[in-house]
Design a binder for these strands. Structure first.
Lengths: 148, 148
DNA sequence: GTTAGACTTAGAACTATTCTAAGTATTGAC
DNA sequence: GTCAATACTTAGAATAGTTCTAAGTCTAAC
């Protein structure tokens, strides 16, 4: 392998650094950059799309590192994975409780706020202990519905 | 390729035949068999698992045919696909409206009836038109919760 | 300054699924 | 009935998204 120099890590005391540290990860410029990419264009990109955008500001970053960074961000609760069927996993930096609406027409994904009552309304059978739940919706988004 | 004889299709006027016909599919012994496998063991098998079970009663069936049959069954609304993250797609012959509970401990998937009020409670932003929605839950099933 | 271990990288490997091409069965027209 | 058109099945190749591997690089702790 070529001896590619990695960018120097600068001292960084932002929220990312803290979050990484408390989960046992190190701060790296790649992780910062990938997180910045997600925060910049909040349209639920795939790893591939993150990779393409990340290369603009960091030409030598590899797809393996993008996966590694995304994984670290997910593990320290800064990013959520979003799956629709078996399509490529998408990444979402919105950590408020919300569901996803997939538009069948334009393919966009919209964050939808969840009403506070949702969990209570699920009325599970006795004995089941829910740790996490997810609601996903499909149909036509506002713009596409208006065009029809 | 070897000249493998396919089993003869017998006249069949059951519900499967009708459903297939109205969606433009032909009745075949393989489709009947795959559907029977799903109805027999209702524990949300993957295509691979359906394949393994299907071979017991039809030794020459191929995985490609299992995928083809499952696809046909999904398209004529006899079977639902169930996805958890990016794991292999699972197949569910329960066509009543329900959600899925994934047990983190034992890995089993349980069908959970949905309260009638669910959709109304989602309170979408104006203009969005929902065609389909899905609720999935994770945690501990009754048995695993009791053991802890 | 050393050293252990975390991180990055390119490319190989993996897995679930779809595609391809050849053979087989069924349907509909005659 | 025979024949052609077409749907279906099959094995194996191909694909896509992701994870693994091995080598090199960097950082933190001593």
């Amino acid at each position: 392998m070529d001896a590619v120099k990695h960018p120097k890590r600068e001292k960084h005391d932002g929220p990312l650094n803290e979050r990484l540290a408390t989960s046992g990860f190190r701060f790296t410029p790649q992780r910062q950059h990938v997180y910045d990419v997600l925060l910049g264009d909040r349209n639920h990109p795939t790893a591939e799309e993150v990779f393409i955008r990340a290369k603009k500001g960091m030409a030598d970053i590899s797809i393996a590192t993008v996966y590694n960074c995304l994984d670290a961000l997910v593990k320290c609760d800064l990013v959520k994975q979003v799956n629709l069927d078996r399509d490529a996993t998408r990444y979402c930096p919105n950590m408020t409780e919300h569901s996803h609406f997939y538009c069948d027409e334009c393919g966009d994904i919209h964050d939808i706020a969840l009403p506070a009552t949702t969990q209570a309304n699920l009325n599970l059978p006795r004995g089941f202990r829910v740790k996490q739940y997810e609601i996903s919706l499909r149909g036509l988004c506002r713009d596409c519905a208006a065009k029809q």
